[in-house]
């Protein structure tokens, strides 16, 4: 699966990074290396770029760059732990829990304006008042 298809609030493990030259090198340098866990924090208003959380920091990239990264989604929606410390703490948990619930009727909408987004499911972690669940 491509990282660009991963929905906000979801987590995955990087399998490989395609592309070439400066771009690929920059992606690798920023820590997008195989076996790294990433968490999709949110999508920009136009549906692109996306905001990721990995290795304890926030990184944004465009869908065209995320397209180059293939990932293995992690099926646990409730707990995302691992190298991305932000994911393991409470706020991410709030998103993730929402994500699980809202999944059914959500469609593949990305962002508000772009990409044929149909409505805004609450599952995408956008809610201003996303519940802050507590861990364990």
């Amino acid at each position: 699966m491509r990282l660009s298809r991963l929905e906000p609030g979801k987590q995955a493990v990087i399998k490989s990074v395609a592309g070439e030259g400066a771009l690929r090198r920059h992606l690798l340098d920023m820590g997008l290396t195989p076996n790294t866990e990433v968490f999709v924090r949110k999508v920009a208003p136009m549906g692109d770029p996306i905001e990721l959380c990995l290795r304890g920091y926030e990184l944004t990239l465009r869908l065209s760059e995320a397209e180059l990264i293939s990932v293995e989604p992690k099926e646990s929606f409730v707990f995302c732990s691992g190298s991305c410390s932000s994911c393991s703490s409470s706020h991410a948990h709030g998103y993730a829990a929402d994500s699980g619930r809202g999944r059914g009727g959500q469609g593949r909408g990305r962002g508000f304006f772009g990409r044929g987004g149909k409505g805004r499911g609450r599952g995408r972690g956008f809610s201003l008042f996303a519940k802050r669940g507590t861990e364990e």
């Binding site: 771009l23 920059h26 905001e51 065209s64 760059e65």
Partner: peptide, 9 residues
């Protein structure tokens, strides 16, 4: 250019 940018705290 690719837009791969850190969002600082």
């Amino acid at each position: 250019v690719p837009f791969v940018m850190e969002l600082p705290a």
